[in-house]
Simulated assay, not measured.
Amino acid sequence: MSAHNPMPRSAWIFPALAVLLFAAVSATGYVFTLSLGGLVFAIVLLVILFGTVFAAVHHAEVIAERVGEPYGTLVLTLSVTIIEVALITTIMLGDKPAPELARDTVFAVVMIVCNGLVGLCIFIGGLRYREQGFQLSGANVYLSVLFALATITLIMPNYTTTTPGPVYSAVQLGFVDVVTLALYAVFLYTQTVLHKDYFVHERAEGEGGEAHPSAGALALTVGLLLVSLLAVVLLAKKFSLVVDAVAARIGAPPAFAGLLVALLILMPEGVSAIAAARKNDLQKSINLALGSSLATIGLTIPAVGIATYAFDKELELGLSAQGSVLLLLTFFLSMLTFGTGRTNVLFGLVHMVVFAVYVFMVFVP
């Protein structure tokens, strides 16, 4: 069947507006300032940027539905990660040094996804269906790789002796980039080739399949996805100026920028995960959530590491003692939550409480 729902207008309008906005700003040489005109520009920029991110995720979801699981969530996850790398790299390489941004954003993604998003999905699913099931073997694969990558990139830099923490030396960072990419590549091979069945749970009874788009519609969707991703990359620099100005005006803590970037890039993916939980497809929610965490560490850290090395920038990776405690708590809690293959409301609530503690500690450390 090639029948499919018509493409929403926002799926092509926002990418077009993003490209036009970038062209207009570049042609006029506009410089953002904290003024009435700057406020209007910031609002327009954020609306278009959010809309373009949602458009990119919509196109990724259409492609994902066509290729099926587990490839589908992989397409969506990689698309979001490209946006994340573009935003982080652009802000870090800006005029104002931000060596801790990559660490703060990656940590924020892990906390938002593994506590906020996972908790909300489990809580909503528990309220609606009492219990929900998922593939225990798949969750274990996700968690084992996630724990290893997070420890190597976010905790280990505090305990090296070649250079004072929380940074890796150039050689150490190069080695970590290589092993991180290698581990993530083997995970992808496991997910898509060796053990695809680990990441696909039986659909809820009565839930039918989606109609697939035609070949022409699919080609258009792929093109618009590429345009959307390019538009986000082009506007990332302008977004970084707004973030810096707002953070300076309100006196926000250093981790605020990382939290804001993480919320921006995860919002549309979070909507997809919550919608899947409401449809009693917790497996898809887990694939999206834990897959985002893995892609964030497995791809963002190496990409940012290469960029900082090429442009001679400093990269701080080690978490504070407080952040390390929250990360370890998340590890232990995740092991319990995903240890039986069944979830309920209480598991979700505990994760959301830990997320609330994280957000509170960002502003009141």
Rank of each mutant, 00 (worst) to 15 (best):
A3L: 15
A64L: 04
F107D: 12
Q322D: 02
P166Y: 01
I43C: 07
T33Q: 14
A170G: 08
I112E: 03
V186H: 02
H212C: 00
A277E: 00
Q322V: 11
L263E: 05
S293P: 01
N287I: 12
K237T: 04
P302L: 14
G223C: 03
F256S: 14
K237Y: 03
E316W: 04
T308K: 11
F332G: 10
V85K: 03
V106I: 15
G298K: 09
T340G: 13
V106P: 06
P157F: 13
L264G: 03
A185F: 14
S10V: 04
T343W: 08
M111E: 01
V261I: 11
A255W: 09
Q132W: 08
F360M: 06
L46W: 15
K313N: 14
G133P: 00
R203W: 13
P15I: 05
P6D: 15
I91C: 04
L49W: 10
G126A: 06
L17W: 02
K284I: 12
P213R: 10
V304C: 09
I286R: 10
V222N: 03
I265R: 01
P302C: 13
F256N: 07
G348V: 13
V364W: 04
V171A: 13
K237Q: 09
D177M: 15
A23I: 08
F332P: 00
V53G: 13
I306R: 11
F147N: 08
A245S: 15
L294W: 09
V345F: 14
V233C: 05
V325T: 13
S292V: 05
E207G: 02
T300Q: 01
L349G: 02
L39N: 07
A86W: 07
V227W: 03
P253G: 11
T180L: 06
